[in-house]
Design a protein around this nucleic acid. Structure first.
Length: 668
DNA sequence: CCCCGGCAA
């Protein structure tokens, strides 16, 4: 591979946090803490790059009501800014909220800041994430997931409990952060409309002051290929071994790839080749990294390789943001990522391998420079890099909006169709979402406006996709709320099924005991009913995810109790469960055709049973399914056997419209 | 008819 050095880019900043002050009261008295500089933790704080900027920063923040902070990696902004605000008395009258896209980040940051403040976690400094609330009446600095703040906003749309909201990692543009942009902006405008010119906020953060912070990122040498590579996997393989032969063994390599399958394949190839290397080449430890890997195996990336060996990590984009590995000297970037796209016309999410954005490529490169200078080998040409889109399309423009729209309405936003998104989703996507909610009975249209129905209000109280919430609300009618709660919990977390590809036969044999001819939902229910902690390993069940299912189920049960929903079990009569699922999921129905293929009943699109389904070999006449996944074909995943009558009865008008008919009655 | 990036409520 040619090594053409490319001058490192001009100073780049990692896009950072959005800071909002929600109080219009004058900032409180300045109360600078006389730091005790003899203690290591305070020395550490003062050594952070942000410390130099502190006086200037506070001066600016004191005068501003919102700001965008751009801080390079390692500037210390996330841990220090909340403390500075508090120490300076900005927003001290209430609570300072700092949101994070990920639970682990919220928890560990709270821990770190509590340590710096020398207080017990849950007192002055606390955190709130799903299933865990470590705060008290004393808490003034509250770290939380963005999803959690959004949930809280349903009861408190103006976020009156908070005086300052810091939306950290705003550049990641998660759906939750994007919705919060609008919520926080509304809250702020309401509070400040008396004094502030609303026009200042008319253009999202464009006119908001931007403050820059220097960081500690080390220089990274970027290399491009001379020619475009037709096979990025081959190129990655060649690059790994080229580095392996030339670089000192203590320099670890991180390779960014797209998915489990190609990672496992390349891992095997690397291990094979590494066995037959010439003398002078040290051994190589190849470690795959992707989300569905069991936790114990994920932890392997943090273990140093034995002395003299090189660690080579083959990772999905999980290592871009979620997992930070130290000691990486070389990054190999295939330039590809597997990502979701959404087609509002078909309502179909497509999972496709595509090119990364420039921002993503820089993020990947940055992983080589966390402790020291490093190198990034891009397996594409500089021209190809130039043609990449600058920023990743925000997720809000790539996903089904039904849940977001329901939540916005529950927040009491007056005109959800025209909600002030920072990046507006297409009108088709908004319309498709509202139509979906209408079909579920969650919203009604009156004079061109959409309103939440009583059912919709109840649906919004569940932290679930609307159709799951609907199915739960229907379940008392079928005397199977216990079973539906379990099934919905199972479906709303990552799969509890552990499928190591190398042990496929064993997996199939172990799963046979639970397999139901009624489909995947009932099979999952069987597994849940048989679940015991100690049997997970032999039954290829992911015990961590199963534990999460229990937590989710308890949470949903709690909400059901608050809504006075009757909780009962249908016992062995799983027909009731399927009847209820048919009623709740009728939009996702498919019908067997005379030629043995399937058609989705809503779009008339050809669909197929995914090979992972227990119904893969079967030919049920009618099924409902959880999701469509477009990979090599359009696959239905998680299927449940249903009767045609149940579908008709669930939505007579929907199916009475001839355009929805395929041959619902024609073949007996 | 043969298979899955990553968060989160």
């Amino acid at each position: 591979m040619p090594h053409d050095p490319d001058p490192p880019p001009a100073k780049r900043f990692k896009p950072g946090s959005v800071f909002f002050r929600l109080d219009k009261n004058k900032p409180g008295m300045l109360l600078p803490r006389k730091g005790n500089a003899t203690t290591p933790i305070e020395v550490q704080r003062k050594q952070l790059p942000i410390y130099q900027a502190k006086p200037q920063l506070l001066n600016q923040l004191r005068q501003l009501h919102n700001a965008i902070l751009i801080g390079e990696t390692g500037s210390g902004k996330t841990t220090q800014i909340p403390q500075y605000l508090y120490e300076a008395g900005i927003g001290r009258q209430g609570i300072i909220a700092i949101t994070q896209p990920r639970r682990v980040a919220a928890i560990s940051l709270a821990g770190r800041v509590a340590e710096e403040k020398r207080t017990q976690l849950g007192k002055l400094v606390g955190y709130t994430v799903r299933f865990e609330d470590v705060t008290s009446s004393e808490t003034k600095l509250k770290f939380m997931t963005d999803g959690m703040l959004l949930r809280e906003a349903i009861g408190d749309p103006l976020l009156l409990r908070y005086t300052v909201v810091v939306l950290d990692e705003a550049h990641e543009r998660t759906v939750h952060t994007d919705v919060l942009f609008g919520v926080v902006k509304t809250a702020q405008r309401r509070l400040m409309s008396a004094t502030m010119d609303v026009d200042l906020f008319s253009e999202y953060f464009n006119k908001s002051p931007v403050l820059y912070l220097e960081g500690r990122q080390h220089p990274i040498q970027i290399y491009y290929t001379k020619q475009a590579q037709s096979d990025y996997l081959q190129a990655a393989l060649v690059s790994v071994f080229q580095i392996h032969q030339e670089a000192p063994p203590s320099h670890d390599i991180l390779v960014f790839m797209t998915g489990q399958e190609e990672i496992e394949a390349l891992a095997r190839t690397c291990r094979d080749i590494a066995k037959h290397l010439p003398d002078g080449c040290g051994p190589m430890v190849v470690i795959p990294l992707y989300a569905s890997l069991p936790p114990a195996q994920q932890l392997r990336v943090f273990q140093p390789a034995p002395k003299g060996s090189r660690k080579v990590i083959l990772s999905t984009n999980i290592a871009e943001t979620s997992v930070t590995i130290s000691g990486i000297k070389y990054v190999i970037d295939t330039g590809m990522v597997k990502a979701k796209r959404f087609n509002p016309d078909s309502g179909l999410e497509v999972l496709a391998v595509q090119r990364v954005s420039k921002a993503q490529a820089w993020q990947r490169a940055g992983r080589a420079g966390r402790e020291d200078s490093g190198s990034c080998y891009r397996l594409y040409t500089e021209q190809e890099f130039d043609s990449l889109i600058p920023m990743t399309v925000p997720e809000i423009q790539r996903c089904n909006l039904a849940g977001v729209m329901l939540q916005l309405m529950a927040l009491g936003i007056p005109d959800v169709m025209n909600f002030d998104f920072m990046s507006k989703p297409s009108p088709e996507a908004v319309r498709s979402a509202v139509e979906h909610l209408e079909l579920l009975g969650a919203v009604e249209r009156k004079e061109g406006q959409v309103f939440l129905t009583a059912l919709g209000k109840k649906m919004a109280s569940f932290p679930l996709e609307p159709r799951y919430a609907k199915t739960i609300l229907l379940s008392p009618d079928y005397s199977c709320s216990e079973e539906i709660l379990t099934i919905v919990s199972l479906l709303s977390v990552d799969t509890v099924l552990y499928n190591p590809p190398a042990r496929r036969e064993e997996v199939l044999a172990a799963r046979k005991k639970f397999t139901s001819s009624e489909g995947d939902h009932i099979t999952l229910l069987n597994i849940y009913r048989a679940f015991k902690k100690e049997w997970c390993r032999e039954n290829f069940v992911n015990s961590r995810n199963m534990g999460l299912v229990k937590d989710v189920q308890a949470q949903l049960k709690d909400i059901c109790l608050k809504l006075n929903l009757k909780l009962e079990s249908c016992g062995p009569d799983t027909g009731n469960v399927r009847h209820c699922l048919a009623h709740g999921m009728f939009v996702n129905a498919a019908e067997l055709q005379p030629d043995g293929s399937y058609l989705a009943l809503d779009t008339h699109q050809p669909v197929a049973i995914h090979p992972s389904s227990v119904l893969f070999q079967a030919k049920p006449a009618y099924v409902v399914f959880n999701e469509l996944l477009h990979t090599s074909r359009c696959y239905m995943r998680d299927l449940c056997l249903v009767d045609a009558d149940w579908l008709l009865e669930a939505a007579p008008e929907y199916f009475a419209d001839m355009s929805h008919f395929v041959c619902l009655f024609s073949e007996a």
